[in-house]
């Protein structure tokens, strides 16, 4: 039960390392970016998990219930910002891949290196 209760904390490193592995092992630039996105998503999960408490709801003060349990909204706000940053990074990365594809005619890293070595 204890192990399952910490499910998110177990998934976080698994996702993180899966993403990192994809970045390192794939030669296809799009697949690398997918790995990068997973890598970032893992961190979003870490932040979102840490603010959750059992029975907690949105942090809105309810009349007649001053003891209302609520989840900490701050990590959610932080992660909203981090998601935006992640989107910007992904968009820029994809734009670079488009230009690489236009100039090199391929998006496989080894073929690009082969062309530059010539």
């Amino acid at each position: 039960m204890e192990l399952l209760g910490l499910y998110n904390y177990w998934v976080f490193p698994v996702l993180l390392m899966t993403g990192l592995y994809a970045i390192m092992s794939r030669a296809n630039l799009i697949k690398k970016l997918i790995g990068l996105s997973m890598f970032q998503a893992a961190v979003f999960l870490l932040y979102i998990t840490m603010d959750k408490i059992e029975g907690g709801t949105a942090p809105i003060l309810q009349a007649g219930n001053p003891e209302q349990l609520y989840s900490n909204p701050l990590p959610q706000v932080l992660i909203l910002t981090a998601i935006v940053v992640g989107i910007a990074t992904l968009a820029l990365g994809l734009a670079i891949v488009v230009r690489i594809s236009e100039t090199y005619g391929t998006i496989e890293e080894d073929e690009i290196q082969g062309q530059d070595a010539e």
Partner: peptide, 20 residues
């Protein structure tokens, strides 16, 4: 272009580590 792609990937990994 490949240089900046590598910079982007490694820079993002670095920043994400910092965020963790």
């Amino acid at each position: 272009l490949p240089a900046v792609f590598r910079y982007l990937v490694m820079g993002t990994i670095g920043a994400t580590f910092y965020l963790i």
